[in-house]
């Protein structure tokens, strides 16, 4: 093509073309990232995210933030560092939550008939907002990893507490003490998932008192910081524009 030619005939057309591409890019990025993030999250933290009786104070709090900070870190590495768009983490979480909510309604409830208040997804939005705001305010990957990553881990349980608290109240059923969430799992039988493979709090952390969730959240925050660093660089690589020369 000629180096002196423009593909558009006026500034107005250039603006229109540019805005149209913005929408096409946003749509594509949103749904492709949604797909990759969702398959990653469902297969690394999914069981804790699917069912309320897995949403305990120890493993859910530990696993979910660690495995979910990955894609937000990678997408921030492109959206902020190349375009100064301060919503990399939020757009990832919006995508993940959209994919999850559609699935829980259409398939968990619509196909296999589990009630939505037994299989709703975890809320990751508070951590995502903080992660984006820290990056926007500091313009520093290191501070975002340390402060934002820590907030990501620490905010997860409080961010879900208003939804989960009513399901963690104790009930006595056939002479046994359990939570309402456990009772849901007891009634809605998952034939392929017998009770003995459920990985939930076993009580050993109570050796230090009853502070299970805070200890788990701090451990999760620590690992989230490390994962953020790692995935930031993954994101930089995935955002590359390099070509391999054919031999």
């Amino acid at each position: 093509m000629s180096a002196s030619q423009s593909a558009v005939r006026s500034r107005a057309e250039a603006v229109k073309v540019s805005r149209t591409f913005d929408w096409l890019i946003l749509f594509t990025l949103f749904f492709v990232v949604l797909g990759g993030y969702h398959i990653h999250y469902m297969l690394t933290g999914g069981d804790w995210d699917f069912w309320t009786d897995w949403k305990d104070r120890r493993l859910w709090v530990t696993v979910a933030p660690i495995v979910s900070i990955t894609f937000p870190a990678a997408v921030q590495a492109v959206l902020w560092w190349r375009y100064r768009l301060p919503f990399g983490a939020v757009v990832c979480i919006l995508g993940l939550l959209l994919g999850e909510w559609i699935n829980r309604y259409m398939n968990f409830w619509g196909w296999t008939y589990f009630p939505v208040n037994f299989c709703f997804p975890s809320n990751l939005m508070p951590g995502a907002i903080v992660l984006d705001v820290v990056l926007m305010m500091t313009n520093s990957m290191t501070i975002t990893a340390v402060i934002g990553g820590m907030a990501w881990g620490l905010l997860f349980y409080p961010g879900n507490w208003p939804v989960m608290a009513p399901l963690h109240v104790p009930v006595e059923y056939n002479g046994m003490m359990m939570t309402l969430a456990d009772l849901q799992g007891y009634h809605y039988v998952r034939t392929g998932t017998p009770e003995y493979i459920r990985m939930v709090e076993k009580g050993t952390l109570r050796t230090f008192g009853k502070d299970v969730a805070p200890v788990s959240a701090f451990f999760s925050a620590f690992v989230s910081i490390l994962i953020y660093f790692l995935w930031h660089f993954f994101g930089k690589w995935f955002g590359g524009t390099s070509f391999t020369q054919s031999s």
């Binding site: 492709v32 949604l34 797909g35 398959i39 699935n103 259409m106």
Partner: peptide
């Protein structure tokens, strides 16, 4: 990608469980 990686993959989870 949405239908493959998100919709039908998590759907497989609830079916097999």
């Amino acid at each position: 990608i949405y239908y493959g990686a998100s919709y039908f993959t998590e759907q497989d989870g609830t079916w097999h469980q």
